[in-house]
Design a protein around this nucleic acid. Structure first.
Lengths: 248, 248
DNA sequence: CGGCATGTTGAATCTAATCAATCCACGTGG
DNA sequence: CCACGTGGATTGATTAGATTCAACATGCCG
């Protein structure tokens, strides 16, 4: 048995899955025993390329990653941000060809898990298969919310909404508290996620600071006006479908 | 056995599933025998409401439907369009609470199928479960493509892309050919799907007509410049993940 | 120290939204 | 048959939100 002081690399995944479903000690052990291939990756390194047919999935253990698509002239749309515990290309298990790319945003530790062993796991433990299906459906719920942001919210509302979302997602896996978290990527990345130019993102962030809604220094964001930000963003956490639990 | 002249209501579903996967005669029969509750619905009628916890799924048999979210002040974002064979709220099987609404756009025939019987079906036929999972993942792929449209394509490109997508989806289930199809909803709906105002949608459609890329009369769209439209939209059908087949 | 990436700010420009009419097809009722 | 009402499409004028271009500041790293 692993000692508490030497955390299993799968802890990030366990924590993530625990935030959206409950599962047994047996299932937990099976996850911990999955054969993985752990690697450190540089910032802004592609993990999976658009058009490829991966034979493994990537589980993010530390750092940030994103999914994105490029247009020919270089315009980029970031489709999602990913934090430890996420498996950004989980859908490749069911849909062989990637229709987008996955890349790191920061230095990141990634565990590669073969499709084969993931299939073995879900066959032995259908409950885990259901939780993983839940994961990809929750990604889709976030896509839907981002669509509302890009299509029908103005820049201020959209950024406010994204900041609330990121905080709650980080908090759910124990990576944020007290309305503070690390936002270690650039305003260009934020713009590419929201369909805005980096200049405009910058101005809106200034405006939020001016209204004392946030502070942002050295890539540490603090939401100082949480309730107000929720109100402006019309934020409703239903779409995150987080497991309600009594405590911690 | 059903005669050819009296089509089973599930034919729409069979055709849709056949466009994205292959399955056996046995599986096909099981689908045809699903107990359903068929109803005709008026145009612009809600089928499932945001926030509800449905105990059944709705299979669209004829007509058009959409998923959408509303902001408090009435701004609407359409998240997807649905055509016969689609099950817009399929994810409610795994995620109990709806984070958006589903509504008809036209008069529509809808088959309601209880979660219970769907679960029974996927337990007996795991292959069907996989195809259904594939369905919701394909929806997510379309969400991603729409995000690119809203965030990084201009209005002309985005509309061009949507028209190409709708044609191919209709064609895949035999509801369109020769670059012609019925587009029986309003320009306001198109705008709400693309994050544009209806006035602007109108102008762009004019421009497309001016360039002889499309004709649009009485809600019948003909794409007269398919290749050019594909080029402008930078359309790549990979994200539709349609099953490649020799013929028919 | 110099170079580079990121963040900040201003000015000009542009895309698309908004506001406001008007038009047209269609259905209804007198 | 025609007046009327309605929903959708179209067009023009104006405005707003966001982009683009450009410059400069800051901070980090070799």
């Amino acid at each position: 048995m692993l000692s508490a002081s030497e955390p299993n690399p799968m802890d990030a995944l366990i924590r993530k899955l625990g935030s959206i479903a409950t599962f047994s000690a047996e299932e937990r052990q099976a996850i911990e025993r999955l054969p993985v291939n752990v690697r450190m990756l540089h910032p802004r390194q592609d993990i999976v390329r658009d058009g490829s047919k991966p034979s493994q999935c990537c589980l993010l253990l530390s750092g940030w990653a994103c999914r994105y698509k490029l247009l020919r002239d270089g315009r980029r749309q970031i489709l999602s941000f990913h934090i430890p515990g996420d498996i950004p290309d989980l859908q490749s298990l069911q849909i062989p060809t990637m229709d987008h790319s996955v890349a790191t945003l920061t230095e990141a530790k990634v565990a590669f898990i073969s499709h084969e062993s993931l299939r073995g796991l879900t066959e032995c433990f259908p409950g885990i298969g259901e939780v993983l299906t839940r994961c990809v459906l929750l990604d889709a719920a976030t896509f839907r919310e981002w669509m509302v942001g890009m299509g029908r919210r103005d820049a201020f509302e959209a950024i406010a909404h994204l900041l609330c979302e990121l905080y709650l997602k980080l908090q759910a896996v124990g990576l944020a508290e007290n309305y503070r978290f690390s936002l270690p990527f650039t305003q260009t990345d934020l713009g590419d996620a929201l369909g805005l130019s980096y200049v405009h993102v910058n101005r809106v962030l200034q405006e939020m600071r001016g209204k004392s809604l946030i502070t942002l220094r050295c890539h540490i964001l603090e939401i100082t006006g949480w309730d107000e930000l929720l109100r402006i963003a019309e934020f409703d956490a239903t779409y995150l479908h987080l497991e309600q639990r009594a405590a911690g």
